[in-house]
Nucleic acid binder design. Sequence first.
DNA 1: CCCATAAAGATCTAATTGTATCGATTGACG
DNA 2: CGTCAATCGATACAATTAGATCTTTATGGG
Lengths: 216, 216
Amino acid sequence: MSQLERKTAGVPTLKRLPLYLRLLRKMKENGEEYASGTVVAKELGLDPIVVRKDLAITGAVGRPRLGFPMDEIIEAIEEFLGWTNTSDAFLVGVGSLGHALLGYQGFEQHGLRFAAAFDSDPDVIGKTVHGKTVLNIDQMPELAKRMHVRIGILTVTASVAQDVANAMIEGGIRAIWNFTPTTLDVPDHVILQREELASSLAVLSHRLLIESSRQP
Amino acid sequence: MSQLERKTAGVPTLKRLPLYLRLLRKMKENGEEYASGTVVAKELGLDPIVVRKDLAITGAVGRPRLGFPMDEIIEAIEEFLGWTNTSDAFLVGVGSLGHALLGYQGFEQHGLRFAAAFDSDPDVIGKTVHGKTVLNIDQMPELAKRMHVRIGILTVTASVAQDVANAMIEGGIRAIWNFTPTTLDVPDHVILQREELASSLAVLSHRLLIESSRQP
DNA sequence: CCCATAAAGATCTAATTGTATCGATTGACG
DNA sequence: CGTCAATCGATACAATTAGATCTTTATGGG
């Protein structure tokens, strides 16, 4: 049943949902009982219509004149994103970026927990980083299988990215969050999410260029 | 809006251009003289038509049967993105993420150079991180003005993000690359690029959820 | 108890992006 | 030297998604 009622949202909508969630949690802390799409939109500088449509897709129902009941709407978004049950993830590559991600506490609020961290460097293996002991990467596939970990986070150097990705897939990992500048080749059933800083920078640079040429 | 011949590309196109650029540079190193949209597409797993259209917008002209002359197409993309002349950027907030970004050497290949790094923590100020001495954040606006820095990279904690952004704007910075989970309020003329990990994670989680409900 | 109002919900329109098709061009090969 | 095939480039088409308008509903005030 849940496989039918689940709507498939567009990427822009999905990217906005965490913003709503963060704001709503803050509003709840302030003791607010209801949240209307209008105030959420105003707070985030978005169009109210967009917010309403985004919230609608989660299945939450609001009440006219009041808005959405706070607990309901938060629950609906979390449910929609699959953030109600935190899922375990393996992080591979404890370089500076890996360090940074391991140290970011916010992930647990988003349904993600670092079950373990791995590296291939003997100098790093055994060290404790932000409370996690770094394990040998050789153990990763086996552990992934045993713990049924579905999410892998790739923060290794580009040259070994494909090999590590293969190892992840061998371990049964179904989604890879790729922070390396590498185009990975994976089977169809594996979800690939690329986090490309260069792409973001490209958008920024281009916009800066356009702006500059408009009013130098 | 025809005061300049520069075309304004859509975001998806902009995000793909760095991928092309990286591949093309690699191909050039391998001694290739020409690059056809077809092989680029095949290498990156994209549709050849998309690649052709993307490359077309940069203004490069290709030759039938051969493709695009390597130097020309690389130059065209760099030019289009404004990566021919490296621009200086200030990084504010030398936490773990700031560390990671400062250590990423790839930026200089993308026309970005860290002119300086700043922090407010006395324990951090004066330290050298990846060759950059961390300066006091108080000096940032003044230095930005003097050095005509246009890009600011925000890697501070969420609570002070808005204040630091204001200081950046005061220093004349025109584009802010925001790595904090904060919705910043900035004047219209300031370009804001948000790097929201939670948003990416939302997309990943949702796709994983859809896939799981499809074939459990 | 009724009316005014604010907000949700549905429907429709427009824009953006991706996809397909077709012709033109040019280097390669027989 | 002529034909072929691959590739660019332009144009047209389709699908998805964002954005706008209108209607409905329920609440709070008079």
